[in-house]
């Protein structure tokens, strides 16, 4: 049987960028999964609140300083992140390297601030259900910061290795930047929930 060739694909690029790549869609799908997880955590928080005679249960509302500083910092971190994203799209290796080093440092700061947030809650996870849910929400978000930080560090190393100058790597940097935006975006409703809902 002779093949009836009707299309020639030879002219296509050997790698898709952005929405033409599978990894972009894969990242999106994982964000959907984790976003559902975050949303459920908030729903559980509100559910427990709806049952409680007073909220927070046996605790003062959380102190605002650490959490608010962290929130402002996260929002600001989006700026360098967008720049790295742009440089990666321009495939500018030198600037991407600098940007990744900056983003690695940027990833460490929220972890330090987070260490002050847990005590600012005025409650431990094993005291009551309020304590349980706030610790789990903070913990859940912390693991996301941590994962993205490790990913950024590995990417930084990669970009200083012989594998660096490759559109595929720049695509990885784009996906990583998208993920950081996600980490920031999911924090905002969590912040509102943890710090302001108890003050309503």
């Amino acid at each position: 049987m002779k093949d009836k060739v009707v299309i020639d694909l030879a002219h296509l690029p050997p790698h898709g960028l952005g929405t033409a790549s599978q990894s972009w869609w894969g990242t999106l799908a994982f964000m959907l999964i984790e976003g559902t997880g975050f949303a459920l955590a908030i729903v559980v928080y509100l559910y427990l609140m709806s049952l409680a005679p007073q909220w927070p249960l046996d605790a003062a509302p959380p102190d605002l300083v650490a959490g608010t500083t962290l929130t402002v910092f996260l929002v600001l971190s989006v700026l360098p992140n967008i720049l790295v994203n742009r440089w990666a799209r321009q495939q500018d290796l030198r600037k991407v390297r600098i940007g990744l080093i900056v983003m690695s440092l940027v990833g460490i700061v929220p972890l330090i601030l987070r260490a002050f947030e847990f005590p600012a809650m005025h409650i431990k996870w094993d005291q009551n259900a309020y304590g349980s849910i706030v610790w789990v929400m903070l913990g859940l978000h912390t693991t996301h910061i941590l994962t993205d930080l490790v990913e950024t560090l590995v990417l930084t190393c990669l970009m200083f290795s012989r594998h660096a100058d490759n559109p595929r790597r720049f695509g990885d940097v784009n996906d990583n930047a998208m993920y950081w935006n996600f980490v920031v975006a999911t924090w905002l409703p969590m912040y509102a929930c943890l710090y302001w809902v108890p003050r309503l």
């Binding site: 559980v44 427990l48 049952l51 996870w125 094993d126 009551n128 259900a129 349980s132």
Partner: peptide, 12 residues
């Protein structure tokens, strides 16, 4: 020892 499902401590 969290209390998500423990009614005695605000869980459900």
């Amino acid at each position: 020892g969290t209390h998500f499902f423990n009614p005695a401590e605000g869980g459900d």
